[in-house]
Design a protein around this nucleic acid. Structure first.
Lengths: 147, 147
DNA sequence: CTGCAATGTAACTGATAAAGTTACATTGAG
DNA sequence: CTCAATGTAACTTTATCAGTTACATTGCAG
């Protein structure tokens, strides 16, 4: 649907941080960018969103870098989703429908309602898993592909 | 999330058709475009997708136009969604993650699994409502805004 | 208080996608 | 055969995504 990979990259980031925190104190955007295979600025833009949502801590100055703000088991996929995606899942019309037409006049209000329910169902499912779950599955898949 | 309004326009179309079928035999893309307030080609592109999914019938030649293929109460929002959206809800990375990194190697397989569950929850919710429901709410909202 | 390694942002650049527009071949009942 | 509408292709405009360069800012180490 969207050509937008920010949610995926955000999950990659926090999963990587959950794993790397066992080895390092602080992680830099440069290190993370190497795992995601992209540029540090893109990473920092997303880390900025995660920071605004208080999912990560940042430290400036010498020995700067990032840490997870709380254990991976206490960060749900919904937390990450809401930190990253501010737009609604489904867009309404770009141009206002014909307000003279009974359908055109009422459709947006109706769709808003159905879209809200659909988005809610999505979010409830996202709330059921945590970054710790993703890390676990990631490592399982990773070691399987080593063989 | 997506800047894509096709699902909204598709629902507008079928809702309009459900209503208009009480007055007309056949509806043209020109008529629908006037309600959506857009151009007929965009409408026909979406009608083409709905047709491929067998949700609407098309007639060519003189007295050409469109009809719903079955009653609005038998067309779910999921039917429309699947007719329109072929892309997955969440995109994976555009560039392959670093395969040397354990996270980079396993993250896509893991996310595919979590994304599948989330998309499934969304679809189950969409399956719960029909175009007839949307029409009902649309007309209710429409008449309320007349007052 | 200075050096410096990293963050925080802005600005610019393709690349890609959405939707508007024009144009025209195709369809098939009358 | 005619004609009104479909079916598509091609082009344009606009917007968004993400890569890139650049540079001011931060704040600990020395």
């Amino acid at each position: 649907m969207s050509a937008n990979t920010r949610f995926t990259v955000a999950l990659h980031i926090v999963t990587w941080m959950a794993q790397a925190s066992q080895q390092f104190d602080l992680m830099t955007s440069e290190q993370i960018a190497r795992s995601v295979n992209t540029n540090p600025v893109f990473i920092r833009r997303i880390l900025g969103l995660l920071h605004k949502a208080k999912l990560v801590n940042v430290q400036h100055g010498t020995n700067a870098g990032w840490t997870l703000a709380r254990p991976a088991a206490q960060i749900s996929l919904l937390d990450v989703y809401q930190a990253i995606e501010q737009e609604p899942l489904f867009e309404l019309h770009h141009t206002l429908p014909n307000q003279v037409c009974p359908i055109g006049r009422g459709i947006q209000s109706a769709l808003t309602h159905f879209y809200r329910d659909a988005e809610m169902a999505l979010k409830q499912q996202l709330a059921r898993s945590t970054v710790a779950d993703v890390l676990e599955e990631t490592l399982a898949a990773s070691s399987q592909r080593m063989e």
